Structure formats: structure tokens, C-alpha cells
Lab assay of single mutants.
Amino acid sequence: DEFHFHWNGRDIRVRGDSEELRRLIEAIKRGELSEEEIERAIEILER
């Protein structure tokens, strides 16, 4: 699976399928994380 979302003017695409990944992306979409937490998560996910 590939998750695709927009954040902070960026087009983010992440491959993978796990419950943890889904929860993280939902939290990002709901605005539950700080900008710094989101940046760090995206860096890890894009590897």
C-alpha cells in the first residue's frame, strides 16, 4: 500500500502498511502532533 497526503505544502508518499503507520498518518491529518514531531516522522517514513 501507499499512503499519500499533503502536509505543509509538501506532497508526501509513504509505502508500507502497518497499524502503526496508519495511526501516525491519522494523527498527522488530525493535527495531533507538533510540527517538529511531524517533520521527524516524515523523515523516517521517507527512507
Rank of each mutant, 00 (worst) to 15 (best):
I25D: 04
G16T: 09
R40C: 02
E39N: 10
D17K: 06
L24H: 02
F5S: 00
E37H: 05
L33G: 02
I44F: 14
S18Q: 08
R15T: 12
R30W: 09
W7P: 00
E36W: 15
S18M: 06
R22K: 09
D11M: 15
I44W: 15
V14E: 01
E39W: 13
N8A: 06
F5D: 00
L21T: 11
H4E: 04
I28D: 01
I25Q: 04
K29R: 12
I12C: 03
D11V: 15
R15D: 13
I38E: 03
E36C: 05
L21C: 03
D1T: 09
I44H: 08
H6L: 04
N8P: 00
L33V: 06
I12V: 06
G9S: 02
E39P: 04
E46F: 11
W7I: 02
D17E: 09
W7C: 00
I25L: 13
E43C: 15
R40V: 08
E36K: 12
D1C: 07
H6P: 01
L33Q: 03
I38K: 01
G31D: 06
R22N: 06
R22F: 14
I38A: 04
S18E: 05
G16C: 03
D11C: 14
V14W: 14
V14N: 01
E20Y: 14
W7L: 03
H6Y: 08
E43Q: 12
E37D: 11
S18K: 06
E26S: 14
E36M: 11
E43V: 10
E20R: 07
F5Y: 04
F5Q: 00
L21F: 15
R40E: 07
E36V: 12
R22L: 11
I44L: 11
E2A: 05
G16L: 04
E43R: 08
D1V: 11
L24N: 01
I12N: 00
R30M: 11
I44V: 12
G31C: 05
E35W: 06
G31N: 12
A27R: 14
E36T: 11
R30Y: 10
G16W: 05
L33A: 03
R40L: 10
W7Q: 00
D11R: 15
W7S: 00
V14T: 03
R22G: 05
L21I: 12
S34H: 06
R10V: 03
E32M: 11
F5K: 00
G9W: 01
R40A: 10
R30A: 12
E35L: 10
D11H: 14
R10K: 07
G9I: 00
F3T: 03
H6K: 05
A41F: 08
D17L: 05
D11P: 15
I12E: 00
H6Q: 07
S18A: 07
E46D: 08
L45P: 01
G31R: 05
W7D: 00
L33M: 12
D17V: 06
D1W: 05
D1L: 09
A27Y: 15
F3N: 03
R47T: 14
K29V: 13
E36H: 12
K29I: 08
I25V: 13
H6V: 07
S18R: 08
I12P: 00
E26I: 15
R47F: 10
H6S: 05
R10P: 00
F3R: 02
H4Q: 05
E37P: 01
R22Q: 08
L21S: 12
R15H: 12
R30F: 12
L21M: 11
D1R: 04
G31F: 11
E19R: 11
I42H: 02
I44K: 11
N8S: 01
K29D: 06
S18I: 07
D11A: 15
E35T: 13
I12Q: 00
E26F: 14
L33W: 12
E46T: 13
E39T: 11
R40K: 13
E19Y: 15
I42Q: 01
L21G: 07
E37T: 04
E46N: 07
R30K: 12
R40D: 07
S34I: 05
S34W: 03
